[in-house]
Simulated scan of single mutants.
Amino acid sequence: MSLRFTLLLSVFLPLPVLAATVGFSWDNDLFVGADGQYTNGVRISWVGDAHDHCERNGSVTCGLASALSPLPGISLKDEKHALTLSLEQVMITPADISQSVPDYNDLPYAGYSNLEMGLFSWNGDSLFGYGARLGVVGPESGAEQSQKLVHKITGSTEPQGWDNQLGTDLIGGVYFINARRFQQFQWDSGLQGELGYAWGVDANNFHGTATAGGFFRLGRNLPRNFIPDYAGIGTAGSLVGLFDGSGFGWEAFVGSFGEYIGYSYLEHHAEEYDVEARDGVLALVVGGGVRWDNFSFTLTLQSSTSPLRSSDDTFSFGNMSFMWQI
């Protein structure tokens, strides 16, 4: 990793002492037998202790909740509130990573790292989240070093074209997300089911989107988070409420979402390349997970229509997520 990315990572070092939940999430297209385009992504997330009765609580979390209380979904009396921090790094490459010469009919090499901070408020049925992000595109993202390390560990082809990656640029934006448990089921066999949906807007100058989707999950002693998908809509919001229950549980889930693409950094800043973003994509997500009192693991596979007008191939990758309550 680059020095700058390591310094960003150090933001998280003091947090485990105070943390309620820590998560590590890894996307990779090798999980679906591919290697190219969105090739790898890593996210480290922290969700602070839940605070309630914020009308009489003087914590930092409640202070921010009070400042945001005019916004929809933030109630100081009736909801729990938690701060979240996430550090994310993604790597984008052309399909053929063995070539050092740029292929202007494909994607460029691009690395992106960003730090995200949010406030989430929830009750038994719904979740609202607001946040902001700040990041960087280019060599300072550390994406080149991270991808080469992952490919060395997995024995994959070493990427040869990072010398031609997109240059340095700052990224910033704000986001909103809302999720709701629409219906819950309990059968005599002990199995549980849950229908839910989520939607949100992520306004930033890298990949600005509006997304909406739904899911169904089935299992025993289901986790109490609102969104089972840790790779798509969910991000840090998927960890909120995860360990509110106790004991062993498992889940299998399926979901689908649509994403409107309002802005694509690659389309606007890789002028020499044949990159034209579609107006939107449709995606299917399947996965499963297990949970104990203080640990949870989830494996997810995601496939969508291509975000590029020049390609009719599906865009697929897998995700492994590890979560701990500390």
Rank of each mutant, 00 (worst) to 15 (best):
F5R: 06
L7V: 12
L9T: 07
L13E: 08
L13Q: 03
L15G: 01
P16C: 10
V17E: 11
A19S: 14
V22W: 00
V22Q: 05
V22L: 15
S25Q: 14
D27P: 07
D29G: 12
L30N: 09
F31E: 02
A34G: 02
D35C: 00
I44V: 15
V47T: 06
A50M: 06
A50E: 14
H51D: 11
C54N: 04
R56E: 15
V60Q: 04
L64V: 14
L68F: 10
P70C: 10
P70D: 07
L76C: 12
L83Y: 04
T84R: 06
S86E: 07
E88F: 01
M91F: 00
I92E: 02
I92N: 02
P94D: 08
A95I: 11
D96Y: 01
D96A: 11
P102A: 06
Y104R: 11
N105V: 00
D106Q: 08
Y109N: 03
Y109L: 04
A110G: 04
L119Y: 05
G124C: 03
G124S: 14
L127G: 06
F128A: 12
A132N: 01
L134P: 00
G135A: 08
V136W: 06
E140P: 02
E144H: 09
E144R: 15
K148C: 02
V150R: 02
V150Y: 08
I153M: 10
G155A: 08
N164L: 03
L166N: 04
I171G: 05
G172Q: 09
N178D: 01
A179H: 08
A179S: 14
F182Y: 12
S189H: 08
Q192H: 08
G193E: 00
G196F: 02
Y197N: 02
V201W: 11
V201P: 01
D202C: 05
G213I: 06
G214S: 14
F215W: 15
R217C: 04
N221A: 11
L222D: 02
P223V: 03
R224D: 14
F226S: 02
P228N: 11
D229T: 12
Y230I: 10
A231E: 06
V240W: 07
D244W: 04
S246F: 05
S246K: 15
G247L: 11
F248M: 12
F248G: 02
G249N: 04
W250V: 09
A252P: 05
A252R: 07
V254E: 05
F257V: 01
G258N: 10
G258W: 03
G262V: 03
G262W: 04
H268Y: 12
H269Q: 11
E271M: 05
E271C: 00
E272S: 14
Y273D: 01
Y273E: 06
A277H: 09
L282W: 13
V286A: 13
R291K: 15
D293Y: 07
N294F: 13
F297M: 15
F297A: 15
L299H: 11
T300Q: 15
L301F: 13
S304A: 15
S304C: 06
T305P: 03
S310R: 13
M320D: 00
S321E: 14
F322L: 15
F322Y: 13
I326V: 13
